[in-house]
């Protein structure tokens, strides 16, 4: 029987898990996100865009690692300015950064449980939640291996496990399929669809096929702004035969960027 997470039983008091209005975020001296309007509901959202579009900066701001430089940002119904609100948001937020850092001498289990502790899970739930997360990314047979002994694909799966260990309401994944082999990517898409049933998941990727296979909504960014939003089917329909790309979704993606004035 499927276990019921706290996220499913707790009442929600907000219309949008992610709501940004004229959001500006700096990455160093550059305004990498510049006037972004975005509303995300429950489901799996794909974030596409060329290099330098501001995808990673946006994800880092939504993960509360970077503070907004302007505009409004509401996550799970709370603002991100006050420390007490930040703490509440972070309890319900799962995040896989683009560059997943880890402690090489920790085992998979120790690392996942450490992350569960960082997320303020009650002590008595940490062990079971850690095992469940490890099972979900199919790493049970490697649970007691040190992280330094794992391959790149396995480490990526550890990253995904730590992001979902506490059944968050908002999951942010930056390039989660990098390093995964084709079979693992198919498994990951299934996991995404499962998580997205009751959670808001934002997946930043440059692999258009991941978006078309697993996402219910697509956001295309260029030059720090959202230039297109719709379903994968709508994105596929956007492309014409002359647009570059190997698949209808890729051609649609090229068309969306073309409408916005090019590749940023």
């Amino acid at each position: 029987m499927r276990s019921v997470s706290a996220a499913e039983t707790a009442p929600t008091q907000y219309a949008w898990p992610v709501e940004a209005e004229d959001l500006k975020v700096r990455a160093g001296r550059t305004m990498a996100v510049d006037g972004l309007d975005l509303r995300l509901s429950t489901g799996v959202h794909g974030l596409l865009g060329p290099n330098g579009a501001g995808k990673t900066t946006l994800i880092r701001a939504l993960a509360t690692v970077l503070p907004p430089a302007g505009g409004q940002l509401q996550l799970l119904g709370r603002g991100t300015a006050k420390g007490s609100d930040l703490r509440e948001i972070r309890r319900e937020l799962g995040y896989l950064p683009q560059h997943f850092g880890f402690y090489p001498r920790f085992t998979v289990r120790e690392f996942i449980e450490y992350m569960a502790w960082l997320k303020e899970m009650p002590d008595r739930q940490v062990t079971a939640a850690g095992q469940r997360a490890i099972d979900r990314v199919a790493l049970s047979s490697h649970a007691d291996k040190k992280l330094k002994a794992l391959s790149g694909g396995m480490l990526r799966r550890v990253g995904i496990a730590q992001a979902i260990v506490h059944d968050p309401r908002l999951v942010l994944l930056d390039e989660p399929t990098v390093g995964l082999d084709p079979a693992q990517r198919v498994g990951f898409r299934d996991l995404l669809r499962e998580i997205g049933g009751d959670t808001c998941v934002l997946v930043s990727t440059h692999l258009v096929e991941d978006v078309s296979a697993a996402c219910s909504n697509v956001i295309v960014m260029a030059s720090g702004r959202q230039v297109w939003q719709g379903t994968p089917a709508q994105l596929s329909a956007l492309g014409g035969p002359d647009d570059p790309g190997d698949s209808p979704t890729e051609r649609g993606y090229s068309a969306a960027l073309g409408q916005a004035g090019g590749w940023g």
Binding site: R60, A63, R90, G101, F102, L118, K119, Q162
Partner: peptide
């Protein structure tokens, strides 16, 4: 210096 700084910075225990 901290490889997991990015994960730490987005966690509620930070403070």
């Amino acid at each position: 210096a901290d490889p997991a700084w990015e994960l730490l910075a987005g966690s509620p225990r930070v403070g």
